[in-house]
Design a protein around this nucleic acid. Sequence first.
DNA 1: CGCAGCAA
DNA 2: TTGCTGCGT
Length: 342
Amino acid sequence: MGVNLSDLTEPKSMEMEDLRGKKVAIDTYNIVYQFMSAIRQPDGYPLCDSKGRTTSHLTGLLHRTASLIEAGIEPVFVFDGKPHPLKQATLDGRKERREKAEQEWKDAVERGDMKTAHTKAQQTSRMTDEVKESAKELIRYMGLPIVDAPSDGEQEAAYICRRNDVWATASQDFDSLLFGTPVLLRNLTMTGRRKIPGKDIYREIKTEVIDSEEFLRNLGISREQLVDMCILMGTDFNTGIKGIGPKKALKLVRDNGDLESVLRKIGEDIPDYQEIRGIFLDYEGSDDYSVEHGPLDRQAVVDMLTSYDFSADRVNSALDRIESARKEEERKRKQKALDAWF
DNA sequence: CGCAGCAA
DNA sequence: TTGCTGCGT
């Protein structure tokens, strides 16, 4: 979930063409979660193979990747590592909400209320080891780079973006801004259609770009102050102070300078706040990664996905999109090199 | 979610 | 071409 800064951002929408040729670090946990939650049957059950293995994330990844590559975007898939101990409360909270939703889902199915069933089922989505490993396997067969974050995926994504190994971090969450990503992309989907939660209405969704420097300039604060602000509101690593949302937190930090002064002023305390600051600000990531893609192993992808009961035709047509996009990029690259020569 | 197929 | 619906596994 992470910190919610949507009220403070004025995102600029972006044309897909502006992303051509750019490498983007994907917060893989974030997209896999979206697929697991969204790609479901009407009663809420996820797509499964005959062995009972979930396949929603594999369908999602295959098609999303094909679209990204067709748009000339080079995805780098960043995976979460071991969560920071201070994140435990957040993880426990998520588990509790999942279990509650699980019960409500079953109840709804029993009384035949499929609409509620579907909504509740979406809230039970969980990234299991099996899901994570199968996602990695598919990405590997597609020849795309995987970065294993030592801890938080958004943290490492922001790090490789700061090192200029990718141009942007893609996530629906805002945490990578706290982690210092220079550029954040939200709604990195090609088909600009998205269902409004709860209603049967579709709305156009454009990819949004948030430039960190511009974002901070507009707020009139530093990244350090943004982190302090979010610690006041609550992050994945702390609960924050009741009654303080984005607006109040911004004003308090602007008026008082830093978190210490704010806490003194309002007579509150936040345990471990210095350590939480450190998580966001003093991260030295793993340099042991590559962001280059290799060849697509078509046979391996087809073999893997047909073992999950995918239709070979569908898989092949998605892979055709990847291959012809790659060829097209290659052609353009050669042409460009030729033009530069003459 | 996003594709494919069909309607307008 | 664009929009809608249903299906994927």
